[in-house]
Design a protein around this nucleic acid. Structure first.
Lengths: 233, 233
DNA sequence: TCGGCTTTGTGAAAACGTGCACAACCGATC
DNA sequence: GATCGGTTGTGCACGTTTTCACAAAGCCGA
């Protein structure tokens, strides 16, 4: 009798659930069994009402006057995010970044094992990175199908990003995380996430510049600006 | 007679300006001298009205019936973002990620040279990464002051991120880009950007899961979801 | 069982961001 | 110098996100 109409969770909430999940998991490992929205909000650096509203999209899992049971909430968030099973990913690009990502354990540790790496450079094909053998880009289809991969990561130079995206889509991947400094075009229905270091730094530069101007100009400084995105190293 | 009251540019616009800037720069290098909001919107993957509104915050720099002069617009965006001079950064953490970041050229190439790297591990102190000698975290103050650094990058494990943030703030840094999978607390007035790989992947997992459920459930699929953030590899 | 304390869940308002639609305007052509 | 096609800049309406504020509800002790 629980959730009939598959709830549609606002994108802004979806972006915060992983943060709550991480905090709750850490707290649970530290022996904390219950938490209030106030406590969780404090740790997540957000407003308590926001936490409650976010969690309310999952269902009514809190107890008034008491708070939330950490273990149960962890389970519910994981279920809602689809983290009850692993999501192998395929990495396109075995250069510096691709190798760093493949070698980064926090990847597999968090349920996203590297299921394959491909590159166009024959010199790189055949080498082993992060325990996975690099295949040629042209073999991406079989690689994706063999492990039933639906998430692809683009770790190529910007100039090759669109080709990588096209290859991923052709191979059947339906979600892409793009590290290349390029806007990629994908068919409707494909999800795209972006991580662009230069953009992040330029946003910070803007705030720095603003601070400087304000300081030498007139009035006060003060840049409220909260956290921006979430990501793991 | 230009801009009296220092315009306050919406955060959403600030996050898009770097993307316009990159596209315009590329186009200019390709010999393109003029562009309409339609063309720029197409390349940036956004709505044309949004482009015009974003650019209007910089001033009225377009010509009706014609479009925008690329070179001039590049200059204006760079000026507004504070990219008319370099912003050296200090990296905290000389592990895998710190080394990868320090060695990544797109860093310095885009006006953010690595002005210093620090770590707590004595075994790493003294080694040279990306042309810069690793110093001990305790020396971060002099490092920051010597090069007048105002932007810090946290590339430590999550458990050390808060200490890194505290050290950066103590040293006088006023903007922080956090790659660690942890929410950091900073005093009011400090800008924080976040890049969290796990969060990005978990957001994609949510959409994948939704797609799957919808498919086996009833109706159509289709996940509009646009790009997410910006970043460079 | 009742009352007081606490905390959730949510309606409603405010703030923010997006996209449409169109008047204002420019350059070109006649 | 008037007309016309094209593009900007922006008012307005809409949708989304955040925040407030409070009724509903659970726990505990008397």
């Amino acid at each position: 009798m629980a959730h009939r109409t598959r709830r549609r969770i606002p994108e802004a909430t979806v972006a915060r659930l992983p943060i709550y999940l991480r905090i709750l998991t850490e707290q649970f490992d530290d022996g904390v069994t219950g938490m209030s929205s106030d406590q969780l909000a404090e740790l997540a650096g957000v407003n308590a009402a926001k936490v409650r509203k976010d969690l309310s999209y999952l269902g009514s899992y809190g107890t008034r006057g008491v708070g939330y049971e950490v273990e149960f909430l962890v389970y519910q968030i994981r279920r809602e995010l689809g983290l009850t099973h692993d999501w192998p990913v395929v990495i396109v690009g075995a250069g510096n970044l691709g190798q760093a990502l493949a070698g980064y354990n926090g990847f597999g540790d968090r349920g996203f094992p590297v299921g394959g790496i491909v590159d166009v450079d024959d010199a790189k094909v055949g080498s082993v990175v992060g325990g996975v053998r690099v295949r040629h880009l042209s073999e991406i289809g079989p690689v994706v199908k063999a492990r039933n991969i639906s998430i692809g990561v683009i770790a190529t130079p910007g100039s090759a990003a669109q080709d990588a995206a096209d290859a991923l889509v052709d191979a059947g991947v339906t979600s892409i995380l793009n590290f290349a400094p390029t806007v990629i075009n994908v068919p409707h229905g494909i999800s795209v996430g972006k991580v662009d270091l230069a953009v992040e730094l330029q946003i910070l530069a803007y705030h720095e510049q603003r601070r400087t101007n304000a300081a030498q100009g007139s009035s006060l400084v003060s840049v409220p600006r909260e956290t921006h995105r979430g990501a793991s190293a």
